[in-house]
Amino acid sequence: MGSPLQAREVVAFSEGVSPGTVVVRTAERRLYLVNGDGTAIRYPVAVGKPGKQWSGATRIDGKYVAPAWSPPAEVKRDNPRLPDVIAGGSPSNPMGAAAMTLAGGQYAIHGTNRPSSVGTYASYGCIRMYNQDVVDLFDRVDVGTQVYVTR
């Protein structure tokens, strides 16, 4: 039996949110897609490093397959050697297989080129998933899906 961080699973979930809602529990390093029947699909995720975490309500405002990535100013400041753009599909692209951008900021729910980081506090605030999981979630949500991030 592998680590519980290695696979998505259906679990009991009763938070009183609408079916189809995404709930990220930062402290658990888990993302839940609410099914509406008292269950949710739970995915392991990487979340923001200490000092880079956030919480609140937002929504998915874009969906992209193999997106190109431009490092936000803060990431570029910390890593000045990064190029201005990394092409989608490149092994060095940290967005992985797909990304769903979140309204109101520079954050996204996205895949990763560093699967070992999933289950940790690793990002600048984005929610990082295994590529196979981000593709699964991508197919299940729409632009406009409500997202709640809690500590």
Rank of each mutant, 00 (worst) to 15 (best):
K76G: 02
Q106G: 12
I86S: 00
P67W: 11
R114S: 14
S70C: 05
G104C: 13
E28D: 15
L82I: 03
P19C: 06
D142A: 14
P4F: 04
V85Y: 07
E28G: 01
V47S: 09
P71R: 12
N131E: 05
G105C: 10
C126A: 05
G36R: 12
V135R: 03
D142G: 12
E15Y: 05
R30T: 00
Q146N: 11
G104W: 13
V17P: 05
P71Y: 11
I109S: 04
V23R: 08
P50G: 09
D84L: 07
D78I: 02
L137T: 02
A97G: 11
A66D: 08
K52G: 00
S70V: 03
A40G: 08
T21G: 02
T58Q: 08
D136C: 02
Y64T: 01
A27D: 14
G105M: 02
V23N: 00
A97C: 12
L102R: 11
Y32W: 03
N113Q: 13
P72D: 12
S117R: 11
A103D: 13
N93R: 03
I127V: 15
G36P: 08
T150G: 01
L82M: 15
A103R: 15
R59D: 02
K63W: 04
A97Q: 06
G105Y: 10
A97K: 07
R29M: 05
C126I: 10
E74L: 09
V22A: 00
R42H: 01
G38L: 14
P44Q: 02
Q53I: 12
Y124S: 04
V45G: 05
P4C: 03
A27M: 07
G51V: 12
R128V: 13
T39C: 09
V17N: 01
A57F: 10
N113K: 14
S116P: 03
R128G: 07
I86R: 00
A40S: 07
D78P: 01
R8F: 02
G16S: 05
D61G: 03
I86F: 04
S70P: 02
G96R: 06
S14R: 14
T21S: 15
P72W: 13
M100H: 07
A103K: 13
S90E: 09
Q6F: 08
V118T: 09
G104E: 14
K52P: 00
Y148V: 04
T112R: 10
N35Y: 01
A73S: 15
P67C: 04
G105I: 05
G88E: 04
V141T: 10
Q6V: 01
G16N: 05
V147Y: 12
G62D: 13
N35F: 02
G119Q: 05
T101M: 05
R114V: 12
P94M: 11
V141W: 02
F138P: 01
G111E: 06
I41F: 01
N35A: 03
V149M: 10
N79G: 00
V85E: 14
N131K: 03
T145C: 10
L5A: 13
P83F: 05
M100A: 06
T58L: 10
M1N: 06
D37R: 11
P83W: 07
A73M: 10
L82P: 02
W54P: 11
P83L: 07
L137Q: 01
G48Y: 10
P115T: 05
Y43K: 04
R25C: 00
Q6H: 08
A97N: 07
A66F: 04
V17Y: 05
T120P: 11
L5E: 13
R8G: 01
S3M: 09
K76R: 15
E28I: 01
